[in-house]
């Protein structure tokens, strides 16, 4: 198989410079506090990484630096305003907690994101079961401001906090024959009462081709607006693939499996004629029941034009060279 090397985006382009600079200041301060204040706590994360967390035994284990940052005036690389935190955390599709947009906000309190383990397995040299803290350890944590385009034709601009999925993949060392990676959400109807009804096949399954998974834009997020992910946004760890429809961004991940065949993702399984494996944002390929040409950016009145690959065409188009995007929707 030919593995194409995607164009890299310098993180300075994704993270606005001001935030980038502030973050370093901030990390310097908090790191000091964490070291000085937490007895028996461990500082985890690389030199560039901002993620610090207090080791096991402390209730306040945290994977993000907290919400003290000032986000006013921060915009995306295209100059788009951020969607307010309140909207990002109260308007969600997370069927494990109900099918209405405000259900996850109302119901997700039953999820217990700590302690959390993630199983890495399948066709890789280094399978294992990791505690969340160890799982994110090699990652370089940073803010990433991405557009999020839902297949239902609405969108947001969200400052995630996370690290490149590639870091985890490299550590797992997938075998040469592995072509895909499959993710699963927690399956526990006690914590996720929506799983008692069969609106989808549980657990929720999503997947990526390995080159998509290794793409520098693909991240695992543990936070939003610099704070830990609220449960309704997929705590404690979720996938973010900004050039794909939102349903590819699987939430509350418990497993990652490397495989040769294409993962059978939940929405494709529910309605293959409507939702594919690729699910790349594409204004020219309509959903069979509605148009994908435009979208409503939450907070705006008039619908705006949807951009090919959600505006990340320069970075990701080469992944799909020669593919008919109408067939592989």
């Amino acid at each position: 198989m030919l593995i194409r090397k995607p164009d890299d985006i310098p993180s300075s382009e994704i993270t606005p410079e001001r935030v980038y600079i502030n973050r370093r200041e901030f990390i310097g301060k908090t790191a000091g506090i964490a070291l000085g204040g937490a007895t028996g706590g461990a500082l985890i994360g690389g030199a560039v990484g901002g993620g610090f967390m207090v080791g096991p035994g402390t209730a306040a284990a945290q994977t993000s630096p907290g919400g003290q940052r000032d986000w006013s005036g921060v915009v995306s690389e295209m100059g788009e305003e951020l969607t307010p935190y309140e909207d990002v955390t109260s308007y969600n599709n997370f069927y494990e907690f109900g099918t209405q947009k405000d259900d996850p906000f109302k119901n997700a309190h039953t999820l217990q994101p700590r302690p959390w383990t993630i199983e890495v397995g399948g066709m890789c040299a280094n399978p294992g079961v990791y505690g969340l803290e160890d799982f994110i350890k090699p990652g370089t944590m940073e803010d990433r401001i991405y557009r999020m385009r839902c297949v239902e034709a609405w969108s947001m601009v969200i400052p995630w906090y996370g690290f490149a999925l590639k870091d985890v993949i490299d550590r797992a060392a997938p075998l040469g024959s592995a072509r895909y990676v499959e993710f699963k959400t927690l399956h526990d109807p006690v914590q996720m009462p929506g799983q008692r009804s069969r609106v989808l096949y549980w657990p929720y399954v999503e997947g990526l081709r390995l080159d998509e998974a290794r793409h520098p834009l693909t991240i695992l997020a543990t936070g939003v607006y610099g704070r830990d992910l609220p449960n309704q946004n997929g705590a404690p760890i979720r996938l973010v693939v900004p050039w794909k429809y939102g349903f590819k961004g699987i939430k509350s991940i418990v497993s990652m499996t490397f495989m040769e065949q294409e993962p059978y993702n939940s929405w494709k399984r529910a309605a293959a004629s409507e939702y594919g494996f690729y699910a790349n944002v594409n204004p020219a390929v309509n959903h069979p029941r509605w148009s994908q040409a435009r979208e409503r950016r939450l907070g705006e009145f008039r619908r705006r034009e949807t951009l090919l690959f959600n505006g990340y065409v320069d970075q990701v188009a080469s992944l799909y060279a020669g593919m008919d995007l109408r067939v592989y929707y």
Binding site: T83, R296, L298
Partner: peptide, 12 residues
């Protein structure tokens, strides 16, 4: 509508 209780996507 007048008390801003229509959620994040009031038009929908």
């Amino acid at each position: 509508g007048f008390t801003d209780r229509l959620g994040a996507n009031p038009i929908e």
